[in-house]
């Protein structure tokens, strides 16, 4: 118990003293995860929209496939991309392995199914008349698409927050694809794993506090957004 208390106290001291190494790790985490989710949002919305409004053979299969991807462990995505990006792999020439780009790719594929599935559910729950009204008023497909997205903005925000929460805290893919290189690919979860294995609990707890704080902020935002979309006046 003493170890936990002293380590936690030391963790807070590290955070508030502005320890550059800790904040550099936090910065890498946010940068990589933010780029990954920003890259995943446009294709996810297009896929979700096509699945919700399209009518084509294989649609149900694709929906099942994306739902299945929700439960794929991060290490499996990490392993698959590792093989593809490694020197003998089909994309080995790009030399992306153990870079932030590789970590971002892993996180992209982790959050894509979450964004697709949650956006798809929101679109299915939305009134189809929104799309039809926009179209019959003369809006082109793109305009009508953005109109419908605005109508389901609460559901989309929830999807965004859930996706971000998933990738900022994942360790498997980042460890395999980034290699946990100090000052370059070491992010919060991989640093926690490393510090714990070294017995440096204070650093691990400090980073854990940042993740917990982030989770709290994301959940508070979600509550706020869902409250705005409440059916109660």
């Amino acid at each position: 118990m003493d170890v936990l208390l002293t380590s936690t106290a030391e963790a807070f001291r590290l955070l508030f003293s502005g320890n550059p190494e800790i904040w550099e790790i936090v910065g890498i985490s946010f940068r990589v995860s933010s780029m990954a989710i920003l890259a995943a949002v446009p294709p996810a919305l297009v896929i979700a929209f096509t699945l919700a409004y399209g009518s084509f053979p294989g649609r149900r299969f694709l929906i099942s496939l994306f739902n299945t991807f929700l439960s794929v462990p991060a290490v499996v995505i990490g392993l698959t991309l590792f093989i593809i990006l490694s020197r003998q792999g089909p994309m080995g020439d790009f030399k992306l392995l153990f870079t932030q780009t590789a970590m971002g790719l892993g996180q992209f594929f982790l959050c894509l199914p979450i964004l697709v599935c949650m956006a798809h559910v929101s679109l299915q729950a939305a009134d189809r008349a929104a799309w039809e009204t926009a179209r019959t008023l003369g809006a082109n497909r793109l305009r009508a698409f953005f109109t419908v997205l605005y109508e389901i903005r609460f559901g989309l925000t929830a999807a965004l927050l859930a996706g971000y929460g998933r990738i900022i805290s994942e360790v498997g893919a980042s460890m395999m694809l980034g290699g946990n290189i100090a000052h370059y690919t070491r992010n919060i979860p991989t640093a926690i794993a490393l510090e714990t294995s070294k017995g440096a609990f204070a650093e691990g707890i400090a980073l854990g506090i940042v993740l917990l704080f982030l989770a709290f902020v994301l959940n508070s935002l979600l509550q706020y957004v869902q409250g705005k979309g409440s059916i109660n006046p």
Partner: peptide, 16 residues
């Protein structure tokens, strides 16, 4: 048709 014909649903849809 989409440009020149307008369809009003039985319960008109109101945007947010």
């Amino acid at each position: 048709l989409l440009k020149s014909v307008m369809y009003l649903h039985q319960q008109p849809y109101m945007f947010a």
